[in-house]
Design a protein around this nucleic acid. Sequence first.
DNA 1: CAATTCGGGATCTGC
DNA 2: TCCCGAATTG
Length: 742
Amino acid sequence: MGDYLSVLNPEQRQAVLHTGKPLLILAGAGSGKTRVITTKIAWLIREQGLDPRSILAVTFTNKAAREMSERARLIDDRASAAMLRTFHSFGAWFLRRNGTLGGLDSGFVIYDDDDQISLLSGIMENASRAEVRETAGSISRAKDYFLGPADPELDRINYQPKFRRIYAAYEERMAKIGNVDFGDLIKKPVEILRENPEVASRFKNRFRVIMVDEYQDANIAQFELLKTISGTETYVCVVGDDDQSIYRFRGAEVRNILEFPDRFPGTEIIRLERNYRSTALILQAASSVVARNQGRLGKTLRSEKGEGKLPVMAFLPDQDEEAAYCASLIANAVKKGGRYDEWAILYRTNAQSLGFETEFLRRGIPYRMVGSLKFYEREEIKDALALLSVLVNPRDEVAFRRMVNKPSRGVGPATVDRIIGYSEEFGSDLLKAAGALLPELGTKARTGIETFNTVLEEGKALLAGEKLEGKRKRGKIRDQVPLKETLAAGEGLSSIVVKLIKDSGIADYHLEHDEIAGNQRLNNLQELANAASLYALSMEGLLEFLEHIELDRSLAEETAENSKGVFPNGTVTLITLHNTKGLEFKKVIITGVEQGVFPREDKKGEDIEEERRLFYVGATRAMDELYFCCCALRRLYGRTTPTGPSLFLREIDKGGIRVIGNAPYGFGVGTGKPGNRMPAVSPGGRWRQGDRVFHDDHGYGAVTGIRESDEGPVVSVHFDTGHETRFLSEHQSSRFTKISGD
DNA sequence: CAATTCGGGATCTGC
DNA sequence: TCCCGAATTG
């Protein structure tokens, strides 16, 4: 037996060697599940003589898919022929080949949330922005649950009677356009497979082994997809951890993992409970919180690393101090010989990253931000992508609307509506409809449409004629471009990206429109062109490029990161808690662990359980050191609000942590070091008699007293208007702003 | 049609 | 606080 098996512990080996019945691997954080999956793939090929092409491994993120592919290949090269994809990319792959069975042309573009909202706002004409957003969310959720507009159960998603009608209209519109949204990437394949048993059996025969990673994040539609492509002979193996299910908000269904044994009869379960990543004290802190959840299978993680250092709970006055504290921790550690890349700063929402960025820039601490680089959400990038979308799919109403009059070409909304109404006669082809409508338009609109059409036609010609005259044409185009040297066409597909953004005037538009960031915007467009250079200059290449962008937003991050230069000690990672899934760091600081921030104020019931799992995920990223930061004041929505320690901090075993700074009154701990007391905390936490306060309704006032009650400290306030009030410092503090005192 | 102003809402989380 | 869309204005 190969020595690649000897590095496994008994449970891992058991999981790798398991065959026959369906298998559910319950893998705690840091228990080596990726190693198990990759080893299993290699083992199946090597020892079981399986054709790699008959193995399908599904993950949720592209990062995970890439990592898995690399690691499997390291053990056995043939693993590269196995199909390793995310659920969504598998769906897209399926639809490109079999979409016609469901009335879908293979040249579809994937709509993201914004596009979805744009499309929907055309249907819900009088609705507010928020309402459209909400409805778009409902439609996505419905698709996650595999519910169509006619489904009786649809009420559970959105009980409004009109929702069905809107959902149906949306589907109809989308079908006419010939594109798909994220939900369709899962839902449509299932529908096609159900309606075409011969296709389904082809898949059931092709895939002898199907593995699903992070199974706790699967939604109902994804479960259905798994069901429809796995036959009686297919070996199904799912790996997951119910404690790490953090995507309920987008339809993930923990029940999938809880009920897996029922849905796949004969399932065997293997638990991986040895944790190789974190110290025992870190696991203890993480587990003591997640253990409060009701709906969980329950498992005991044991550390293989020894007790380690006490996790730290740092209480800080405000978010500026929080950033300063983190910066000092890191700077000191690096001074002692540590590396920047040992550290990660975790936060609940992207908005929290700003303070750290400022502080790190000021102190010269190198950092990188993961995930939040909303590169593809930038206006100029979306514009360029919309142009490319119209090129591959001239029925793309959303993209057409966005770009036909941008920059302004005298094509007003009335004209656009006419074109769209007229497009029926041209199989919804908007470019053809616009062309046909030309004679009826005024001079301004006519020249505008002509320009737009010409740009796209030339683009199309460039795509189609590449083999014959690609080189010659490229030269010519470069000459006619008015713009400075800033945008350079490179290899392959990048030439067409550059051509479109120049000729359409979008590059100039952004350069001039935004005096401050104009150049940056141009750089971003260049970045997009650079990314495109990896793809072939053809329709297929363009489709691949667009699909990659929609499904894997990390693409631009990597290029942007490379240009930053090399740091000898690496960079600190700034990252949202959600984005840390699957990652690990030596030292982790979880920031903003305050009630109202994490968990957010509006979370309760099952949502709180999900936040707890998120806490668990974050804490178990840490290998050696773990810190929690909790501020007494935080600026939220531009307003400074008093905040209290998160529920989760209260749930941690106080024996297993070290406290730094002033824990609020009633928190249950003094200061970390006995005998070295910090100044006594005031009753009522941050409130003291004599403090000046401000209240939105009553204006200015002063704290007149604090007394204890069953529910915690009660603060009395006398307003300058004469009005008297009392509030529970614990719960209602957020309505009062302290303006003096300390 | 573009520039300016005003007011309200937003910040979750992400394939 | 900031950003975006709608309304207002030139």
